[in-house]
Write a protein that binds this DNA or RNA. Structure first.
Lengths: 116, 116
DNA sequence: TATATATGTAACATTTCGGTTACGCAAATT
DNA sequence: AATTTGCGTAACCGAAATGTTACATATATA
């Protein structure tokens, strides 16, 4: 099955794994320790991350060191980046908006914009 | 249900819808015409995009004009962007790599890096 | 007013996802 | 040699995703 980076980063646990591994390479168990779900579940997430190239493994004895391959994020980065022209149009100050995000980001709101 | 932008853009059809709407606002039917799947399926995709704020609707008579809200991509953009330090470390020429991507991007390869 | 059109949604089927437990096996340790 | 450890995977499960068809409804048109 051909995995896709967009699908890989859609899962919040996989994003957390990426964040962890961006700090340092870790063995599978070291990754699993950071989460509440079972080790096999983490193994599956790592497999998915590996299938789209975002994580590679360096076997060392019975352990496997998991390493992030951040360059695999570039296609997703570029896809999103092409829309910055659009969002910059509507936001007077981009820097200011980012600052707002950092504080208001997770508030709930009603996005629905229609009448019925 | 609280939708999340990462999950919204995980689906290739929804990414295509975003690309379409980034060119111009379209009615629901005009969007649906561009795809092989049924109109109700497109309606659902639009609903998901609306739930995370990426698309809003402007009703006009019995039609609804779908409009992209590109600024909702910013959180995803920033999340990915934080890893550019990592990927720039390993790529001598970033510009050159992008150029390679444009030609070699979709080739299949074997990502598996282990022995067993 | 009767009909056509644009659209949402319910009901349903199928597939995929994300988790679990149980187990197997190779490598390390005792 | 026996045991422990690290890890993959199979079998299974429930929930979520993604599509379909059928139908409801409001608006536009003849």
């Amino acid at each position: 099955m051909r995995r896709d980076v967009f699908q890989a980063i859609a899962d919040p646990i996989r994003r957390d794994i990426i964040e962890l591994l961006s700090e340092e390479a870790l063995t599978v168990n070291q990754v699993a320790e950071q989460f509440e779900i079972s080790r096999p579940a983490i193994s599956k997430h790592l497999k998915i991350l590996n299938e789209c190239g975002l994580v590679t493994f360096q076997p060392s004895g019975r352990e496997r060191l998991c390493m992030i391959q951040a360059q695999e994020l570039i296609p997703a980065f570029l896809w999103i980046k092409q829309y910055n022209k659009l969002w910059e149009k509507r936001i007077d100050s981009f820097e200011n908006y980012i600052h707002q995000l950092q504080t208001k980001y997770y508030e709930s709101d009603d996005r629905q914009n229609t009448d019925h």
